[in-house]
Amino acid sequence: MEGTGSPRQNNPLALLFPATGRWAIRLVGDLGAIAIFFFLAFVNIFKRKQLHEIVRQVYYIGARSSLIVMLVGLFTGMVLGLQLFYTLVKFGSVGALGSAVSLSLIRELGPVLTAIMITARAGSAMTAEIGILRISEQIDALYSMRIDPVRYLISPRIAASIISFPLLTAFFDLIGIIGGYITGVVLLGTNAGTYFYRVQSSIDMIDVRGGFIKSLVFAVIVSCICCFQGYFCHMRSDGYGAKAVGLSTISAVVLSCVFILVADYAVTSFLM
């Protein structure tokens, strides 16, 4: 008979629910897999013969990212100084420029922008490097040599991220405050003493601690997502070989950025 179908087939909502359910189940499964992956990698950080590799990764993820992080921090601080100066002028509160710049940087912009910059620079490299090791069977080769690939490849990167993220965030904050000083004081003529007095008096330890907690959370998120995407790039259904590495790198960067912002909101709401 024409024009008939089951009520379920005709109802768009009935079609939406199973799709949403499948997506949710897959998401929960993936999150579970990432959690187990992180747990195994974290436990392996404390095994022997890890120090050398951790130091090497701190150099690549941390030291090699410091220049770009400081550059971004400088201009972020300068823009903040500029924008806040003209906003505060309207309320006659230019003296609060130091407080506004430093609190914005330490509480929010420092951890978030640092994490995004490291994701772009080191996170994508992590995924691509591990992905290439995977598709060229070098990870299988490690296993065949009785070397745990998670211990050798993943744990040092997670450890190095946990070490590097807070340090780079601190750099970012410091350089950002200097950037605010350049625009607010040097270019726009705010009093230097007032600027630094406001910076010093408005920042509490709880702000600094909150910023560091965020950077630690972001370190775990970024390193886990990037390593996970590279490590399992061979299991992608939408591409194989080099294409899978490329797609995994894109996924790693996009997911890391999204989860950084989601986690930022979650952590902020806990801290406030």
């Binding site: 060229s136 069977e137 070098q138 299988d140 080769a141 065949s144 040599m145 009785r146």
Partner: peptide, 15 residues
């Protein structure tokens, strides 16, 4: 495991 070595088709050297 220590008694076995595996030679991959594409050598799988750490490049």
């Amino acid at each position: 495991r220590s008694t076995i070595a595996y030679l991959f088709q594409n050598n799988a050297l750490l490049d």
